[in-house]
Design a protein around this nucleic acid. Structure first.
Lengths: 228, 228
DNA sequence: CATTGAGTACTAGTATGCAAGCCGCGCTCG
DNA sequence: CGAGCGCGGCTTGCATACTAGTACTCAATG
């Protein structure tokens, strides 16, 4: 009889919970861009010590969601077109490569998962769509045989997540996203790597295109470039 | 294995120095794969407290150069073909995308930098080549307008760095690498994005091909897959 | 002799204390 | 009245103390 290995390496739960909590707060702009964070204050509010707070903030810094300035403070980064473009570039590069592989080697099980996800998206509201979108892209990356692609893309992705979440309430935009998801999965299903890559690339370029509207609604969220 | 005390110059860089020291030790296999690390022991050897050690190890875990198991220990990860393939995939995706952009928009200054680098490589020994190689790839990514590509690729890259460094003493292999660098830069110089991508892709696939020889020389560095 | 159980010596995770440095308010001096 | 300077309160970085939990040693026991 064979027993499955037990997965250790998650019992460090406090740090992870703090990370999830803060990331959620930032990508929903509950913690507004530009806001100053204090490790001490966060520790008080969350009921933990500074140590797990610091470790969570270090991860968020890697995602460019916070900027830590020694002896000065920690700040929620503002939305910057450059950072969004960087994130979009990374995601395009990684996911498009992954989806090409996925189109070549996806199996029936994964394909079924994708289609179930699409069906769920049809009836999802904005909040539910959020999770389903993540799942779909993750499944696509895993189907390509390199789950690390999603892990990295997701990590480089804080800025895009924030844009997306702040823009999602728009139902027309949501409709478009779901349609594009269908296009990608359809191309993968018929093993057409070129079409899948094209569809995904087009899909991923939607998010940066939301910047204009968001800036109109929340100009204070944006980094102000030096006026000449 | 003895690590030298780190120089505590300016504040707020202790963590970084620890990180650089440990990464160097791991990618050169000075700290051999599979070795168990103790935060306390490292703190003693480097003359700092556990805090910066922990923060450096957290970064190295992101690069999958160490594995941290709570209440058990921290270990230098062994070489695994899967991890190497993952790293190669990420680097290919990111750098090939970047080099396409570079071929379109590179300016004379960056091109000059690339060519100066190539000239230096012609006369470099293995140790010097190491740094020049990093510089060349970084410059290529920056020329594409997304420096973050290199920052991410480099970070996903610990496993490849280790393979490369352990294999570099082979002069024939070094010669090949330099030639391939020439091919990539030449394609970029004549604004041929397709050729540049092809050349770079071919170049990046060299590293994983070294796995076989390395396994012969250092089978103990490798993760042993379940023997039947 | 084999097995089991307690005890010990470690581990990383978390909490807390201390040091160095920046910002701004308010006082002092010109 | 205005400008310069010093002090207090804040920040993060680093060091240390404590907790919870694992693996190993070795003796007691069947």
């Amino acid at each position: 009889m064979t027993l499955r290995l037990i997965d250790r390496g998650r019992p460090a739960i406090t740090r992870h919970q703090v990370y999830v909590t803060l990331r959620e707060a930032i990508t929903t702009a509950h913690l507004v861009p530009g806001r100053r964070l204090s490790e001490n204050e966060l520790a008080r509010q969350l009921g933990v010590s500074r140590t797990p707070i610091r470790e969570a903030l270090a991860l968020l810094r890697e995602e460019r969601l916070v900027a830590i300035v020694p002896q000065l403070g920690t700040f929620v980064t503002r939305v910057s077109p450059a950072a969004v473009a960087d994130a979009a570039f990374v995601r395009e590069a990684l996911e498009c490569s992954a989806v090409r592989l996925a189109a070549e080697r996806i199996d029936a099980a994964a394909l079924g998962e994708l289609q179930a996800n699409l069906a769920a998206q049809e009836q999802a509201d904005a909040a539910a769509f959020d999770g389903l979108d993540d799942d779909l892209h993750r499944t696509l990356c895993e189907a390509g045989g390199h789950p690390i692609a999603w892990s990295l893309a997701h990590r480089a992705n804080g800025h895009l997540d924030r844009i997306r979440r702040l823009s999602l309430p728009d139902p027309e935009y949501l409709r478009e996203m779901v349609d594009e998801h269908h296009d990608v999965v359809a191309a993968v299903a018929r093993r057409d790597a070129d079409a899948a890559e094209r569809a995904l690339r087009h899909h991923l370029r939607m998010v940066p295109s939301l910047l204009g509207a968001l800036r109109e609604r929340h100009p204070d969220y944006f980094e102000q470039e030096e006026a000449a």
